[in-house]
Design a protein around this nucleic acid. Sequence first.
DNA 1: CGCCTAATGCACCGTATAGTTACTTACACA
DNA 2: TGTGTAAGTAACTATACGGTGCATTAGGCG
Lengths: 220, 220
Amino acid sequence: MPLEKSRPSSSSTKKRVRDAEATKLRILEAAKKEFAKNGLEGARVDAIALDANANKRMLYHYFKSKDGLFRTVLEREYLNIRAEETKLDLENLPPRTALETLVRFTWEYYIANPEFITLVNSENLCKAAHIKNSPTLKTISQKFVRRIQSLLDRGVRENVFREGIDAAQLNITIASINYYYFTNRFTGSVIFERDFTAPEALKERITFNIETICRLVCKN
Amino acid sequence: MPLEKSRPSSSSTKKRVRDAEATKLRILEAAKKEFAKNGLEGARVDAIALDANANKRMLYHYFKSKDGLFRTVLEREYLNIRAEETKLDLENLPPRTALETLVRFTWEYYIANPEFITLVNSENLCKAAHIKNSPTLKTISQKFVRRIQSLLDRGVRENVFREGIDAAQLNITIASINYYYFTNRFTGSVIFERDFTAPEALKERITFNIETICRLVCKN
DNA sequence: CGCCTAATGCACCGTATAGTTACTTACACA
DNA sequence: TGTGTAAGTAACTATACGGTGCATTAGGCG
């Protein structure tokens, strides 16, 4: 029985054989995986195209070059983590709770998005060549730092945080203690002879990290 | 007229054209630089041979493969940082001074040996494949952790450190807050819009780091 | 329907790369 | 002083890589 095969007039649910946006997205997802797994130099464009179920030609059509693709992937990742962070709604939590929430969020984000760390490492290996001139990134970063600064200010006003802590330094420290544990989990597991990714190890670490930050920021 | 062409009988001061150990060392030094600059995948064996002023064949003769060379470089780097650390003689310093000395040493070691961080990052990208079965590394790491544990114990006995802090967690945290700042100094400089390597920035950071660790470990 | 543009596919290129083959040369030791 | 062995060299290979030229096709629009 003849179902309508392709009615261009029909609604948005119809299957498109040619769909630029979908193809772009598939390439970006595949690229994220491949870049994260093998680094910028180690990643293979053929592998990306294959995994994206797209032709390599499309990759160059949409993103110009391997570096162009990497830049796009990386910028999307930064946008994503900041967007998630904004959802935490820290400004409506008591300062100490907000601080703890931020630490825990960072930790859980790295667990849920292991690619992020490796992508950032790759970008630092090439001295931030791809994001150096990204106005988007600078804008969202400024907002982010200001958000933390206002949390610190509020904590001081409410007499629960110590005075004089710099928001940038605090941000760096929170990222540090979470990031390092994950990025170095392989050498770490060898050196400390324990499985860094075992559930109990993870639990122990996040507890320690929250303690570290609270002792640094809170009074008493 | 045949003049004496070469008198091999002369004493130890004679210049040696062939010197296996020296060649090996030159290759290792060149490899360290190249691997650190471009990562394991990005490093070029031709570039290493050229910089070492050695023939590429020698590289394969002494180290079997690119990975074999990387393994050797990395193991030497771990041995070096632990050797330097041992020289600190922490056990003969008051606990709090010892702790501060350790934090400051870590910081300064990363500044003086920027290659170390990049090499470790590369090793983690390939899931510690090169060091996974290194007994040497495990031995020196155990000693290292024990040294910190005994410092913690001594501090508790002298009533200057809090009880119940795990040496491994503390080590990880000390490494974290120093390591992260350097490995991410390029993206960091973009995001926080400040030069991470400026002298004042460095000074501010190490001060902050010492404070972080002291607040974590020390009583009041 | 038929046209035009954008999406897609295929086959190819030049080069750079890790690794090797086959050779020469210095020197320690008898 | 002669010789075996290890140090050193140069030219080469096979292939994998990032990137491209050009033909083909789908589908929105008039």
